[in-house]
Simulated scan of single mutants.
Amino acid sequence: MQLVDNDTFLSRLSSLFQSSKEHGTIWLTHKRLTHDGDDATMDVGDDTREYPCIIRVTDGEDVTFSTHITSGQLNKFLNAYGTLLKSSMNTLRKRDKKREKVRAEKLAARKQGLAEPVPIEGPKRGNGRRKRQRRVKAAQKQDAARQRMEEEKTKV
């Protein structure tokens, strides 16, 4: 991992966005840098120290670099960084609304199926007995599914 200054970081990140415009993935990691050489402890007390931030960038293969941002430089850096991200995010993949619509339709059909009771008709003995047994079993499953849905609604 290569540590660079803030301006170099932004220019290299911009060129990385341009190179991966057609295809590729870029991972950005933001963290508070707390390593002082000692063991890290999380004290909730009145800690007045200011910690720098570290931002890491990788494309998962050969490009990896990072920068440190002190609290005094944070506002200036975040303005430039935010502008760069907004201008680079226009190449994101569009949502697949067709697939979402199919899922929503299936869910609606399932809910409608639970709303309509399964008709139990036919003779208890003789021809049609097995058909009636299947319908009774389907009605029991439907009741169990309704109860599960009601339990889920009460949990939320």
Results as ranks from 00 to 15, higher is better:
Q147I: 07
G72K: 13
P119I: 04
R32I: 14
N90W: 03
P117W: 03
T70D: 11
R148I: 08
G122H: 03
G128N: 03
T34R: 15
T41H: 12
Q73K: 10
I55H: 01
N79K: 15
Q112K: 12
S71Y: 14
K86Q: 10
L84Y: 01
R99T: 13
P52R: 00
Y51M: 01
P117S: 09
G128H: 04
R134G: 03
R110K: 12
T58K: 01
K124S: 13
L114D: 01
K111S: 07
V118Q: 02
E105D: 13
D46M: 12
M149L: 13
D59N: 11
T70I: 05
T48A: 10
M42T: 10
E100K: 05
V44C: 14
Y51K: 00
K111Y: 13
Y81R: 01
E50I: 01
A139E: 07
T58S: 11
P119R: 07
P123T: 01
V63Y: 03
E50Q: 05
T64H: 15
C53W: 04
I54L: 08
Q112C: 05
K98N: 09
T83P: 00
K137I: 04
N90H: 08
L78M: 14
V57K: 00
I120P: 07
H35D: 15
E100N: 05
M42N: 09
G82W: 00
K86E: 08
R49K: 06
A80E: 15
P123S: 05
R110I: 02
P52F: 00
V102T: 09
E61K: 11
D143V: 02
R93H: 08
K111L: 14
D96E: 07
K106V: 05
G113K: 05
P117K: 02
D38V: 06
E150A: 06
R129E: 12
K124H: 13
L92I: 06
K124W: 11
M149V: 03
S87P: 01
Q112A: 14
A40I: 11
K124T: 10
R32C: 12
T34S: 13
K141S: 08
T70Q: 06
P52H: 00
K141M: 08
E61N: 13
E100A: 10
I69Q: 02
N79V: 13
H35K: 12
R148L: 12
E121K: 10
V136W: 07
Q142H: 03
A115R: 14
